[in-house]
């Protein structure tokens, strides 16, 4: 591709955001789906907190970390899902060839998907955090500046995974769709969402530390349990995310090239 391939057009990015906003607005099941699972899980964890808090001791703090961990995990999972779902909508509607022959650059498409993942995340998560505040007195937003750091790092990881998943679907068709739903769950045990890294066997701990979310969840526990904001962990996560985003972008570009070589766009949906 020539150098014009990286020239950005805010209008084209806006067009893609608008396209997915129209879709989201027109479909109540899609809106409901964004809120349903976070709400169900929040209620479950919230009641668990109430039950445990009734007993004195350190367990109440532990459950608070569980609740924060659940909400942060949801940012990671739904960030990736928000990115990938917007992408899959194009595959399901057999619209991808129309986009690929338009002046829309791949990088603009990716930015639009990132914007839509934030929109989807906001629609799903904001009401749930408000519900947590009203029903269980848990103020997620009370994490303050740290929350912004957690949020940014988790979102970057979710986009890196989303780029890789969308590349796989472009190259292999909708047969690879299942990966978009399940790939993130590989990180659930390894990123130490609900327990400290020290819980893992020694040999597995370096693997955990190579995952950006691990530092975020460790940082969250330090904040909730010790009231300490670990800047070092956030910078570690940010550095890893830079590598992950680069790897995601490179894999997407490579898989896009492979899809063009294989003629995958002529068999979209198969």
């Amino acid at each position: 591709m020539s150098e014009t391939a990286i020239a950005l057009s805010p209008q084209r990015i806006g067009a893609m955001v608008l396209r997915h906003w129209y879709l989201l607005r027109s479909s109540w099941p899609r809106l409901l789906e964004l809120i349903y699972w976070p709400a169900v899980q929040m209620v479950m964890w919230g009641f668990l907190q109430i039950g445990v808090a009734a007993k004195p001791g350190a367990l109440a703090t532990t459950v608070s970390t569980f609740l924060a961990a659940f909400l942060l995990w949801d940012i990671l999972f739904r960030g990736q899902l928000g990115y990938t779902m917007s992408f899959l909508e194009e595959m399901w509607s057999r619209n991808m060839p129309n986009l690929m022959i338009s002046p829309l650059r791949p990088v603009e498409f990716v930015i639009a998907l990132m914007v839509m993942s934030i929109v989807r995340l906001a629609v799903g998560l904001v009401p749930v955090t408000i519900m947590a505040m009203i029903f269980f007195g848990y103020n997620f937003w009370g994490l303050g500046f740290a929350l912004a750091a957690f949020f940014a790092n988790l979102l970057l990881t979710s986009w890196a995974v989303g780029m890789f998943c969308s590349g796989l679907v472009l190259r292999n068709g909708l047969g690879a769709e299942g990966l978009a739903w399940s790939l993130m769950f590989i990180l659930l045990p390894l990123a130490c969402v609900y327990y400290p890294v020290s819980t893992l066997p020694d040999w597995l701990q370096p693997v955990a530390w190579a995952l950006p979310p691990t530092a975020v969840f460790e940082g969250m526990r330090a904040l909730v349990i010790e009231q300490t904001f670990r800047l070092d962990l956030m910078l570690w996560a940010l550095g890893l995310n830079f590598l992950w985003i680069t790897a995601g972008a490179v894999s997407l570009a490579w898989l896009l090239g492979e899809a063009r070589k294989a003629g995958s766009f002529l068999q979209i949906g198969e």
């Binding site: 129209y22 879709l23 027109s26 194009e90 509607s93 057999r94 619209n95 129309n98 979209i268």
Partner: peptide, 15 residues
């Protein structure tokens, strides 16, 4: 090749 089904004709053309 299709256009997005849930978008109206006007919305599709605008995008």
């Amino acid at each position: 090749v299709d256009l997005p089904h849930r978008l109206t004709v006007r919305q599709n053309l605008k995008v």
